Amino acid sequence: MDFLDEILLTGLTVFGHHGVFDFERRDGQEFTIDLRLGLPLKQAAASDDVADTVHYGELADKVAAIVAGEPVDLIETLAQRIADAVLEDARIKTITVTVHKPQAPIEQRFADVAVSIHRAQQERAAWTSA
């Protein structure tokens, strides 16, 4: 039985134009993304070859392009877009995406606002075949 190992990419900060308000889309703000990928890494450890794992530099570029790309109203939607794109790699069995919006337009004093979603490869397979 293969156990799921993890690759974590945390603190990826990208400027984007997401939000419900016009000024958020116009002015933009920084978003911080955390990813937790569940996948077997036994083969990569044995081969010591980057081709047998997820190249986290390429992963960061892919996610950054989504965050910097087409605006959405909700960070929930942004998190789902990121999860969908990451799960295109069939080696990744599970993903947790957290989108932080530390400059959210909230009148009260706060440290951060974040949304986390958890998705699995089998969910994606069911979604795309439906």
Rank of each mutant, 00 (worst) to 15 (best):
G11H: 02
F31N: 04
A130Y: 00
D84L: 12
A104S: 03
A83M: 09
A90L: 11
A111Q: 14
G28Q: 01
Q122A: 03
V115N: 01
A111P: 00
L35H: 04
Q80E: 15
T98I: 06
I92H: 01
K101R: 08
L87F: 06
T77Q: 08
A130Q: 14
A125M: 12
T10F: 01
D48T: 09
A130F: 10
Q108C: 14
S129Q: 13
R25P: 01
E76K: 04
A83D: 02
S116P: 05
Q121F: 00
R36K: 12
V20P: 04
L78F: 02
I95Q: 03
A65E: 15
E6A: 04
A44K: 06
L4V: 14
V99M: 01
A45N: 05
D61R: 15
K93D: 12
F110K: 09
G69H: 07
I95W: 04
A44F: 10
E30F: 10
D52E: 11
A90G: 04
V99R: 07
A79W: 05
D34I: 04
T128A: 09
L12Y: 02
G28N: 05
D5F: 08
T10I: 03
A68F: 03
H100F: 00
E6Q: 07
P105M: 14
I92M: 02
L9R: 10
A120R: 15
F31M: 11
A126L: 13
L12E: 05
Q29E: 06
E88K: 09
V72F: 01
W127V: 13
L39M: 08
D2M: 15
D48L: 02
T32C: 05
K101F: 04
F3Y: 13
F21I: 12
G11A: 01
T98V: 12
H17W: 03
M1R: 15
Q43S: 06
A85F: 08
V115E: 02
K62I: 11
Q43T: 15
I75T: 04
V63N: 10
A125P: 01
G38N: 11
G11M: 02
A125W: 14
D49I: 13
D2V: 15
A51Y: 14
R109N: 15
T77D: 03
L35I: 10
I7A: 01
V54L: 07
I66Q: 00
R109D: 15
Q122F: 12
L39V: 06
L78D: 01
L12R: 05
T96C: 02
V99E: 02
P105Y: 12
D48K: 12
A65L: 11
H18S: 04
